[in-house]
Design a protein around this nucleic acid. Structure first.
Lengths: 344, 344
DNA sequence: TTGTAAGCGTTATCAG
DNA sequence: CTGATAACGCTTACAA
């Protein structure tokens, strides 16, 4: 009747199996040179003791936590949620856990998270910093001293970058609208000063300029956040003397607000106003009319990020940081049509 | 010119500060009995060395990882995403990181995750197992030997349970519909055999029975998954000889499908068909008409879960497992109205 | 192929 | 209040 419930350790396993400590470890790690007999004895002992490896000890000794850190702005954003799920799946298959952290666009949190990734000995990180231009953030990233992939951010960090070609996608959408006869095209984006927003604006501007249209400032609406109500902004847009005949907008809740504000104003899509969503929320496809969208390939981004990070974590010492620009597609569905006849 | 970039350890800090190892540790942990002088010297040394605590070593020695595991079905579900974010925020404030894992309704993953939580020495867990009735899962939970909170699952595990009163919420919705004159009320839920689905069905049934209405099997639709297209199911419902005049449905993509199928069939909400959403997606509020919804209080759930878990992790040895049933509200908006006159 | 022993970087226990 | 010193549970040389 020992009063020591004592979690079993390698030592206990070794004793029960009648082998040495080292052999247990070797068997455990499937490492070279273990005779089948020893292996079996060890396995059996582990089973009867219900032995569980102590991960902290392994990490301390082997200097590898088999964990990758993932810093995103907010998992509540469906795109990030999907990405995270794919990361998790791929890394798990490779024997890594992923530790998620949301920075919520707060500088102090972002620095905290990075520092914590360091302290917890992440083997690598995938990050989409909200403060891509902040010197302290950049310094923190480089000081990590581990492989990193930067996701869709314009950063000067010497790391691999996986990015979306938002500019081309939005430009294609604008081009299609112009081809349909639109001249007054609005853009609804978030106020955050990050790459996706900047590039979308550039794409919009480029699309207009390429067709000899001046990009009117009043058509560019910067929402305080991607989740803020957008109804009022849309109303203001519609009240403009030169009201836009087409709207390119953020997806999810902003798109919903746009659609409903249009409805409430008695305007029909696409007859009165054409609409393009940046991002492809659940309801865009099944909405009537189906909403045309600028779509990023999240699967490709996840695949590329994981592959690159795994490569680097598994010791391939590749010199230069790499970067890839993933294509962004414009999918024309039923929400774009020629503008109403000139006079309104 | 030492070729040893050697990450600084407490030892280095101690040497530089001219104090002993123990003092550094004590200063580091803000623990009792450190003279201000020593503390300052240590702090300064840490700063100049850019010292970072090695979390693995601390975990190994102190037997606490300051990490809580969080197992959910899928963060891609907006409710779970919100919950996770709140968990993260609260636990961070208390000095814990949270490690997220999606079980994706796969038994083997679920067991893996639980075992990994064990092996990685989580101090506590919050879990919503997909296989709430599975003996192995239950065993794994109890063998964890650490505080746990079970989220919205009917489990026999001897742990704290935080649950939503789906039944009451759905029943209230049904009652409101009956009061408006509806007799044929459909329910669209997922096929998963978990508590939320079961309770919703019970609430629906109870609401009908309480009003002397027989719950017709053909009005109960079980979608293969909460993200599967639901258009066809809705069409079948509408084609029924006794087609329902009201639909209570899962939110997010299913709700979108319902709305659009109704639109496509030329039916108006709420004139021809009333609609209630279970869950409150972004677009429900701003949709025209605004969609009535059965709403869970995710904030309350997060608050309760975190508070209970923190209590237990911080050593309060409370005997019995606790459970709470959080109220679920029916919010009537504009999508419910009397059914069309008898003849259609 | 296997056993032995030396750490990994902390915290905890004791003396002083 | 501070300084030595022994763990924590594992991996990894190195010897046998």
């Amino acid at each position: 009747m020992k009063t020591k419930p004592h979690k079993p350790s390698v030592k206990d396993v070794a004793k029960l199996a009648g082998v040495s400590l080292g052999s247990v470890s070797r068997a455990l790690n499937g490492v070279a040179n273990v005779s089948p007999e020893v292996r079996d004895k060890v396995m059996q002992a582990m089973a009867t003791l219900d032995y569980r490896l102590n991960h902290a000890a392994r990490t301390l000794r082997s200097r590898s936590s088999h964990t990758v850190g993932c810093m995103l702005t907010d998992v509540t954003n469906p795109l990030y949620a999907r990405l995270y799920r794919m990361f998790e799946e791929r890394f798990r298959a490779a024997g890594y856990m992923v530790m998620l952290a949301n920075s919520l666009n707060r500088l102090d949190w972002e620095l905290d998270i990075l520092s914590m990734f360091h302290s917890r000995g992440m083997d690598g990180v995938i990050i989409a910093p909200g403060f891509e231009r902040n010197a302290r953030v950049l310094a923190a990233i480089d000081q990590l001293g581990i492989p990193a992939v930067v996701l869709d951010r314009d950063t000067t960090a010497r790391q691999d970058h996986v990015m979306f070609d938002h500019e081309k996608g939005v430009k294609a959408a604008v081009q299609q609208l112009v081809d349909l006869g639109h001249r007054r095209i609005a853009l609804l984006v978030g106020a955050a000063a990050n790459r996706p927003m900047r590039r979308r604006i550039q794409g919009w501007r480029a699309g207009l300029v390429a067709n000899g249209i001046k990009a009117d400032r009043s058509w560019l609406v910067r929402l305080p956040s991607a989740t803020a109500p957008a109804g009022e902004a849309v109303q203001q847009l519609l009240a403009l003397r030169d009201a836009p005949t087409a709207i390119v907008t953020l997806g999810t809740s902003v798109l919903a607000d746009v659609l409903n504000t249009l409805n409430a104003a008695g305007l029909q899509v696409p007859h009165d106003v054409s609409v393009v969503s940046m991002g492809d929320p659940d309801f865009a496809r099944s909405y009537r009319p189906a909403i045309s969208a600028v779509i990023v390939d999240s699967e490709a981004a996840a695949e590329q990020s994981c592959q690159w990070l795994l490569q680097r974590m598994q010791g391939e010492t590749l010199a230069a940081p790499r970067r890839v620009l993933l294509p962004v597609q414009f999918v024309d569905r039923a929400s774009c049509a020629p503008p109403p006849s000139r006079v309104r």
